[in-house]
């Protein structure tokens, strides 16, 4: 554990809590892509199956459980409790365009051809692209509430901090995980355009982020 890794985990947790509280307090999931949230729940489910096989640390187990519970709770809020506010019309990204190639790639490129390893790889690849329905929705509607942009900022920052963590680990431990690093770079690149808009429009302006 190093400072980049810890800051990354905290950033990830902050992002998920921001989104959950936004929906819970406003009793509305307007502007939120339910599809992205289902994909994130799928990411955590397929990655954290090792909860049943190995014990790493109390921190590791608790964080995994928190991520799992919050991701499913968020999906529940969007599709059940506040489904009246769900904008299914604009949440029209075709997730099969992500799921099919990601599944295929996980079978082709993995560390071992075992169910847990393939599912772990699947989760890493899927996480890299899971935000696309959300970004697609913002592009389609042309705007995002500032609280939604704060969520996206922390979610993007988390993987960027993990990149710093991997650089740190490579230099201190010689640790290098090719699948995670390549996917992490791809994932972070997806947020770059958003980071730019966030700094220039949300932080310097006020209220909603509207696209030009």
């Amino acid at each position: 554990m190093n400072i980049f890794r810890l800051a990354g985990d905290v950033s990830h947790l902050v992002a998920i809590i921001i989104l959950f509280l936004k929906i819970w307090k406003s009793k509305s999931c307007a502007g939120i892509s339910g599809k992205s949230q289902v994909l994130f729940a799928l990411v955590f489910t397929s990655r954290y199956l090792d909860l049943f096989t190995v014990f790493i640390s109390a921190y590791n187990t608790i964080m995994k459980l928190v991520f799992l519970v919050l991701s499913y709770a968020t999906v529940y809020l969007i599709y059940m409790r506040f489904r009246g506010s769900y904008d299914s019309e604009n949440d029209s990204f075709r997730v099969e365009f992500l799921l099919v190639p990601v599944t295929g790639l996980a079978f082709l490129e993995n560390y071992a051809f075992t169910p847990l390893e393939i599912l772990w790889t699947f989760s890493i690849f899927l996480e890299a692209v899971a935000i696309m329905p959300q970004l697609f929705m913002i592009t389609k509607t042309g705007e995002a509430e500032s609280i939604t942009t704060h969520y996206l900022f922390f979610l993007g920052l988390y993987r960027a901090l993990y990149l710093a963590n991997w650089v740190w680990r490579y230099h201190t431990e010689g640790f290098f995980d090719q699948i995670a690093v390549v996917s992490g770079v791809v994932q972070t690149i997806f947020y770059c355009d958003f980071f730019y808009l966030y700094v220039t429009r949300v932080l310097r302006g006020s209220g909603k982020m509207s696209l030009p």
Binding site: M1, R5, D9, H12, D50, V54, I56, S57, N60, M63, K64, F67, Y111, A112, T114, L116, E117, W120, Y162, N165, F175, D177, A180
Partner: peptide, 10 residues
């Protein structure tokens, strides 16, 4: 993974 990488990351 089981051998190829450390599994402490989230």
């Amino acid at each position: 993974g089981t051998d190829s990488k450390l599994k402490d990351e989230l």
